[in-house]
């Protein structure tokens, strides 16, 4: 038909938008009354007391120099190194990281790397290493695709988004072949085939 098919892929900025709902600890530098948002109330802000706010708010406050960000416990050299070792030890499993770890790390490193994140460069390098080792595992998973189901625990949002076009198409194609008896010469074509769209680079 004439219109385009809705694209099930989520764009990277959308993933980052979603991750910005995650709560993050900050230490405000200015006093401020409780803020009453539609999605919830946060405050009062009384320096130097720690408080949790959504990441999008933390980012805004940080940009206006109204808070220090306390990086989450996992955004830490020792922790990430341990996760990397874990990834190496388990070639067929993924270690548990927050679902949006890449997006959260990206936002935090962008707005607070200079003063709030210790050893930001090493953190960044470890994240890159983790990403690469997990990415190659995820891609190797394509061999396991079958027309019934595939379990992919602990994959993160960005990682799922990257393999989705390829994996879904493989799944649909296998399903089609299986449902096709030998009496059919061709494929039933009243179903749409899903077109792979380009993958996202982080």
């Amino acid at each position: 038909m004439l219109t385009t098919k809705p694209n099930p892929n989520v764009a990277l900025p959308e993933l980052e938008f979603l991750a910005e709902d995650t709560l993050i600890s900050i230490i405000p530098t200015h006093r401020m009354d409780t803020l009453h948002f539609i999605s919830g109330s946060y405050g009062p802000f009384k320096p130097p007391n720690r408080i949790e706010v959504p990441l999008w708010l933390a980012r805004l406050l940080k940009k206006k120099r109204r808070c220090h960000i306390q990086p989450p416990a996992w955004l830490d050299v020792t922790y990430l190194q341990r996760k990397y070792d874990e990834e190496q030890r388990q070639p067929d499993r993924f270690s548990g990281l927050p679902f949006a770890y890449m997006e959260i790390a990206h936002v935090l490193l962008e707005c607070a790397a200079a003063d709030d994140i210790p050893q930001a460069h090493t953190v960044q390098r470890l994240l890159q290493d983790l990403r690469e080792i997990r990415q190659s595992k995820a891609r190797a998973g394509l061999a396991a695709v079958n027309p019934i189901y595939l379990q992919m625990d602990n994959l993160s949002a960005v990682e799922i988004n990257e393999i989705r076009p390829m994996f879904c198409q493989a799944f649909n194609q296998l399903q089609r072949l299986e449902s096709q008896g030998p009496e059919y010469g061709g494929m039933p074509n009243n179903y749409e085939s899903s077109q792979p769209s380009s993958s996202y680079q982080y």
Partner: peptide, 16 residues
């Protein structure tokens, strides 16, 4: 036959 002019969504398509 089994070919229809009406485009229908493929309910068997893969989702995560």
């Amino acid at each position: 036959g089994n070919i229809s002019m009406v485009t229908v969504p493929n309910l068997r398509s893969a989702v995560v």
